[in-house]
Design a protein around this nucleic acid. Structure first.
Lengths: 142, 142
DNA sequence: ACAGAAGTGTAGCCAAGGCTACACCTTGCA
DNA sequence: TGCAAGGTGTAGCCTTGGCTACACTTCTGT
């Protein structure tokens, strides 16, 4: 067995982490989207969420069901979706992280439009430690 | 309807892109892993692939089946898995991109270990344009 | 006020990527 | 050499996140 190159356990852990991050990604995206819609329109409607996410409304309904299950949102039939305090906090963290990631990409020379697009996928895999490093870099470069 | 903030179509496109990238991620990870194992041990065995990826062997078998379906790998029952030319090219691109992403993270101040962990998830969402920007940044920075 | 339009819920399908359990093939060693 | 151990295949289950089709509710405008 080749324990020669690099501890297989560490490699394994990296992949596990990436899979966990992916599981959170949908929750994060929806929470942020609902928060956006609430700010812009007073409430988040299923149809609007679906349209913005680029999915059909049953898909959005399922995602919202999961948010509710996780205690991040509440809703009543045929009424809008609202974030709980927990959900609002998550949305705030996600929004902040998104901005930092976009800013960092731009700072190292990525075109603004590309930065926005790539950040959407990237951000979910940026750990706290990396986020702090990004902030420090941006501050110092200022 | 609030078409006021930002074209909803662009937002939608960002999420679609992120979902597409995610669909490729597993293929990319397995291709690179198989390539690694082939270099280190001469061939990639299902059990070794599974162990490195941190999954059970049936999960690895399914992933390999998908690689074969996509023309990226070949295998015969009870024998190792081998990448096709296409698969090898993919693995090379993935490896190169991984290295660039890790280097960039380190360059902006992310601790090396953290950079390795985060890169595993991040890399799949780094577009060609962003990758070129990263390379340019690293080259210029020396 | 009520009918049609628009929005929402729900059922049921699919593929992917996890898992466990179990069957089968290969290999190595006593 | 033959059998136990270990590697591999396969069946079947779960969840997630897509979808379409269809039923039902709400809203709107004449």
């Amino acid at each position: 067995m080749p324990e020669d190159t690099a501890p297989a356990d560490l490699t394994t852990m990296r992949f596990s982490r990436a899979r966990e991050a992916q599981a959170m990604a949908v929750l994060e995206d929806y929470a942020e989207m609902i928060d956006d819609l609430a700010r812009q329109m007073g409430e988040a409607r299923i149809t609007d969420i679906a349209a913005r996410m680029g999915v059909t409304h049953p898909t959005a309904t399922k995602a919202v069901a999961r948010l509710k299950r996780e205690g991040l949102a509440v809703s009543r039939p045929y009424r809008g979706v609202f974030l709980t305090e927990l959900g609002t906090e998550l949305a705030a963290r996600v929004r902040m992280r998104h901005r930092v990631v976009v800013d960092l990409l731009i700072a190292v020379g990525v075109p603004a439009e590309t930065a926005e697009i790539d950040a959407e996928g990237l951000e979910h895999h940026v750990s706290e430690a990396t986020l702090r490093a990004f902030e420090a870099y941006l501050a110092q470069r200022g």
